[in-house]
């Protein structure tokens, strides 16, 4: 049974220190109100998994000292430039880095969602990504001969990647805890693969999203949703993509990317926009 929490503080209290947290990419459904609540809770030792990459959400957590491990294909603010606190923390040697490539993250999550020990993928062989990931293995394709492939056909085995918690912000949920994600199906894979999904939604709607095939096709059943809260504009300052969503607050993100280049500027940003919850449009 999905638990309905009143606010992001109650959701953040469910995410323990040291948790391995799956985060969606910037073009998907980012739960920034919940991320800010994690900063206010002073979360520690988090292991962030970018699915397959992240930007502002993770940069905020890294800058606030909540993170010790980053497992991702990339960290970037896209059009707004490099993620400043991530970049500073890596240069200072403050993070345990598990650099990956996008489909390796997806392969690991897909193994977890089907309860398999690993997935295999093409690519990676000869890269420094693979050389620096002793947890990945090169194995021979056991079916090479019958598939008409000459030689041993080496492939890379990626172990199941099972996050403790998946965190995202969806457009809507019903009162049964079913959550609509439409075509943003990485959120579906993330919810399947993780032990728990602790999420926010833009609004809670009447009826059952599973009753209509058109909504059911893009809905995660409540079976996979541990807890959720209704948070209007919960993706701000990032976009809620899609025709029912809203655009990113480009001015705010550009200011963040500039301000967070220095530790002092980042602290000033936290003081103004994160630590004082009444400054948040999502909570006012």
């Amino acid at each position: 049974m999905t638990v309905f929490e009143k606010n992001v503080a109650a959701l953040a209290a469910r995410i323990p220190d040291g948790a391995k947290i799956a985060l969606p990419p910037d073009y998907s459904y980012c739960a920034n109100a919940l991320v800010r609540a994690l900063v206010r809770r002073r979360a520690k030792g988090l292991h962030l998994v970018g699915v397959p990459a992240f930007g502002y959400q993770g940069d905020l957590l890294i800058g606030a000292g909540c993170v010790d491990t980053v497992e991702t294909a990339a960290v970037t603010m896209g059009e707004y430039g490099l993620a400043p606190r991530f970049t500073a923390a890596v240069k200072a040697g403050e993070l345990r880095l598990l650099d990956a490539t996008c489909p390796a993250i997806h392969a690991g999550l897909q193994a977890a969602e089907r309860g398999a020990p690993f997935s295999v993928m093409r690519g990676l062989i000869g890269s420094d990504i693979l050389a620096r990931r002793p947890d990945w293995r090169v194995i021979d394709n056991p079916f090479a001969a019958q598939q008409g492939i000459e030689g041993r056909d080496p492939v890379v085995a990626i172990p199941a990647l099972k996050p403790d918690v998946t965190v995202f912000h969806a457009p809507k949920a019903d009162r049964f805890g079913n959550v609509f994600i439409g075509v943003r199906r990485e959120c579906m894979v993330m919810a399947h693969a993780a032990s728990q999904a602790v999420i926010t939604v833009e609004r809670i709607v009447d009826g059952n999203l599973l009753d209509d095939v058109e909504t059911a096709a893009g809905t995660i059943p409540s079976l996979y949703i541990t807890a959720l809260a209704e948070v209007a504009r919960g993706a701000w300052p990032q976009a809620l993509p899609g025709n029912q969503g809203y655009a990113a607050d480009a001015v705010h993100l550009r200011d963040y990317a500039r301000q967070a280049k220095s530790a002092e500027g980042f602290q000033a940003y936290l003081d103004a926009h994160v630590l004082e919850p009444l400054a948040e449009p999502a909570l006012s």
């Binding site: 294909a73 960290v75 970037t76 970049t87 489909p103 093409r122 690519g123 990504i129 620096r132």
Partner: peptide, 25 residues
């Protein structure tokens, strides 16, 4: 990814994205 030692780089960039798959296929 980075310039210099990847553990204490002189410069760090976003990361490899999907290159370690797309470049092969």
């Amino acid at each position: 990814v980075s310039i210099g030692d990847p553990d204490r780089p002189k410069a760090r960039f976003p990361g490899s994205f999907g290159s370690a798959h797309m470049y092969y296929v």
